[in-house]
């Protein structure tokens, strides 16, 4: 099972406090996200909608490549860096 690190934006402080990095594990991207949500269940409503899709104004990068996490079966590489950011929007 691979280990990865998830980076969270400071804007999510109301959900997770001062946490910015979360170590997760899994064989796939989907398992890594499930690991993240087990550790911080309050993130689910902020990152994903009711149809489990990444929210439109949330961006996700895996090892620097942007993804909408639509294919959760992608193999998670050891030491992967998963980054969530809010999109440049809002006013």
């Amino acid at each position: 099972m691979a280990r990865a690190v998830v980076s969270l934006p400071r804007l999510l402080e109301p959900a997770v406090g001062a946490v910015r990095k979360v170590e997760v594990e899994g064989d796939t991207w989907g398992e890594a996200i499930a690991s993240l949500l087990r550790r911080h269940p309050t993130l689910r409503v902020h990152l994903f909608d009711e149809e489990s899709r990444l929210r439109p104004h949330v961006m996700c990068f895996v090892n620097g490549q942007q993804t909408r996490l639509e294919d959760k079966a992608v193999v998670l590489s050891e030491g992967a860096e998963i980054t969530f950011l809010q999109a440049v929007s809002g006013g």
Partner: peptide, 26 residues
């Protein structure tokens, strides 16, 4: 939020707040 979901937060003192895990949801 313009980016994230809607959530309920609780506080004993109006200073320390904690998000509810099982908030209203469809």
């Amino acid at each position: 939020s313009n980016w994230f979901g809607a959530s309920v937060h609780r506080s004993p003192n109006l200073v320390e707040w904690e998000q509810v895990e099982n908030g209203p949801s469809f």
